[in-house]
């Protein structure tokens, strides 16, 4: 196979990694009936916390762990607002995004001041199980977190469709009254789902700062969280279909970078905007067939 295609495929897997983590997280939340618009801020916060802890302790994996914990805290806050208090999910989620974005920028300024060159750390190195072998070598030349992200797809599928916990999550997202009547604790289930969701989102952010960039920048997430929300709809709330969506977006994203290099007579911003436009187009195609979890956006109050 030609090197252009192999390179494109390998890069697609890399670009798709944070999206896949964020999307699987959002999928958990929405399957339990909560739209978490806190995702953009949670990924940003995860990228920030991961970078700081990774940099201070010198252990990148501790950074990832801290990002996951930070994401879980964000999930707890979302759960307190949307599950415990039952406030509007759109506004509370956006509020969390604004809060965590502000908090990360505030913390970054305190830790690093206003450096002319953004502080950097030595990022994760890639695993190359196939060494210099043609095709397989470059294709599998990936970060451990990429392996983990793709490995999570079957795990999430199994959790959602083959365990009683998954059944409970789907039940509280479709019909919380019936789930409650069957003895499921709706509140606890939604809290857990949002915690898992937040942890995945935080890890997605940490991938960007600790693996892909080795730095933390203000534009590090740049709307990726919103793309994840679109991918959940595009993938019809199914972990396997969501994977195809993440790969599609990752592919378009990397393709536009390569098109820029070829040097077509268009401003490079046209290509940067392309993945977002393709996502909107994909949503339009998915359109009316989108099967939203029936209880999404509806707070549950036990009578």
């Amino acid at each position: 196979m030609d090197t252009f295609l192999i390179g494109l495929m390998a890069a697609t897997l890399r670009v798709a990694t944070p999206l896949l983590m964020g999307t699987l997280g959002e999928l958990f939340a929405e399957r339990a009936g909560i739209l978490n618009l806190g995702i953009e801020g949670t990924m940003f916060f995860g990228a920030f916390v991961g970078f700081v802890v990774g940099g201070v302790t010198g252990s990148l994996w501790l950074g990832v762990l801290a990002a996951v914990l930070a994401g879980m805290l964000s999930g707890l806050l979302m759960a307190f607002l949307s599950v415990r208090l039952g406030v509007n999910q759109h506004v509370s989620g956006l509020g969390i995004t604004l809060l965590l974005t502000g908090l990360s920028l505030f913390g970054f300024r305190l830790f690093y001041g206003e450096p002319r060159i953004p502080p950097a750390i030595e990022p994760f190195s890639r695993l190359s199980p196939f060494g210099q072998t043609p095709v397989l070598g470059p294709l599998f030349d990936q970060y451990a977190l990429t392996y983990i992200a793709f490995g999570l797809v079957p795990v999430v599928w199994w959790l959602l469709y083959r365990t009683s916990f998954g059944l409970q999550i789907r039940a509280v997202g479709e019909n919380p009254e019936a789930a409650d009547a069957a003895g499921v604790n709706v509140y606890v289930t939604r809290y857990l789902a949002l915690c898992i969701a937040g942890g995945l989102m935080g890890a997605g952010g940490a991938f960007l700062s600790l693996a892909q960039l080795g730095a933390f920048t203000y534009g590090i997430i740049a709307g990726r969280g919103w793309v994840c929300i679109a991918l959940v709809i595009f993938g019809n709330w199914d972990p396997v279909k969501v994977l195809w969506g993440a790969l599609l977006f990752g592919g378009v994203f990397d393709l536009q970078l390569r098109l820029q290099i070829i040097g077509l007579q268009l401003p490079y911003e046209t290509f940067l905007a392309l993945p977002y436009l393709v996502t909107i187009l994909a949503l339009a195609v998915a359109g009316r067939n989108a099967a939203y979890p029936a209880a999404l956006l509806k707070p549950y109050r036990r009578e």
Binding site: H90, A222, G223, I229, I233, Y276, L283, A286, A290
Partner: peptide, 15 residues
């Protein structure tokens, strides 16, 4: 087409 406006307005903010 009943496409969620939250997502599309957010994406257009990036565009």
């Amino acid at each position: 087409l009943a496409v969620d406006e939250v997502v599309t307005t957010l994406l257009l903010n990036s565009v």
